[in-house]
Amino acid sequence: MNTAPTPGAARPPLHTSSGPAALGTFEFTTPALPERRALELLDTYYQCGGRLLDTAPTYGPHDDGTFHAEQLIATWLRTTGVSDVHVITKTGLNPDRPHLGDLRPHTILDQARRSADRLGAGFTLLLHRDDPSVPLDEIADATDKTVRQGYASGLGASNWTTTRLTRWAAHARTRNLTVPDVTAPLWSLIPRTRRAPEPWLVEADPPHLHHAAEQGMTITPYRTLAAGYLTAHHTGRHAEHHTTTYDTPTGRARRARLHEAAAMLRMTPHGLALAYLRAAAPRVVPVIGPRTVTQLRQCMAGAAAAARVTPDLIGYLEARR
């Protein structure tokens, strides 16, 4: 296990060494992305300059109720000898109740220890869901212990509101505890409908992005292609989700402008969608979930081209109609 830094000590922010995008591993070892193909994606991702893997104890689900993504990452790290790739993993989610977090101190510490045992390396630990039933001081103390005990090298949160992130950081600073420096909201060019499914998922908005920028946090957004809506057209496994979540007049208009601009820039729509996120806010490392090597290479090339996305282009892409 890697030795974690002392709380309060400076550590390089993730965005400085991650490469243009983080590789999401939710489907690793599932029928959609079996082990051989997942390992091929890991190899290609590394060749493309990627250095940040996004996983969780509940990624790589199997029908028997087990999860295998963390173990596959550990196998890949061990067999390749790669030492400059960082891992984000998570704690506090019961897959049987995805709308609820479980951030009781013993849960945080136990899951962090188990992830450390599986991964065999240090990681940044994100709280997968919020759990307002647990006092914030208990959460801050428990997450700090995961760093002090050598499991995590840094902390952050996924699907936490701006208000809760602010309070956690303020409490940690006053008590000299480890301050969260990563936030992982749902974020893409297209906002969800007002009554979207999965209301417990927290979507990035201007206040959230402003807070992250003000605090110097790395942003690792997920569903960065609006669950494929930005590139697909109501077909395939996400068709119903597209219709209920993203298919609005604003969504259709933004998708059309994205495709038009991508053609003019000779980029893929998904590449430009990722470049947009990296240009729209500082310290953004979008999480991608490609299924093929071709998709992966296109995503990495697009994310690396953020400098081509000018303020004028951002304004054009974000226009509501």
Rank of each mutant, 00 (worst) to 15 (best):
A74R: 05
T79C: 04
T80N: 08
V82C: 15
V85T: 15
V85F: 08
V85E: 04
V87E: 07
V87M: 07
K90P: 06
G92P: 13
G92W: 06
L93C: 13
N94F: 00
R97C: 09
P98Y: 04
L103W: 11
P105L: 10
P105T: 10
H106L: 13
I108G: 01
L109M: 13
D110Y: 03
D110K: 12
A112L: 07
R113S: 10
A116D: 10
A116L: 13
D117M: 11
L119F: 00
G120K: 07
A121E: 08
F123T: 06
F123I: 07
F123E: 06
T124E: 14
L125Q: 03
D130V: 07
D131M: 03
S133E: 13
S133W: 01
P135G: 02
E138C: 07
I139E: 01
D141R: 15
A142Q: 03
T143V: 15
T143G: 01
K145S: 15
K145V: 14
T146Q: 11
V147Y: 00
V147L: 07
Q149M: 09
G150Q: 09
G150F: 10
Y151T: 08
A152K: 09
G154N: 11
G154P: 05
G156I: 07
A157M: 13
A157Q: 03
N159S: 08
R164E: 12
W168M: 13
A169H: 02
A169W: 00
A170H: 13
H171Q: 12
H171I: 14
H171C: 08
A172I: 01
R173F: 02
R175K: 15
N176E: 12
L177N: 02
V179M: 02
D181E: 12
V182K: 02
V182G: 01
V182W: 09
A184R: 14
P185M: 10
W187R: 01
W187F: 05
L189W: 09
I190L: 13
I190Y: 09
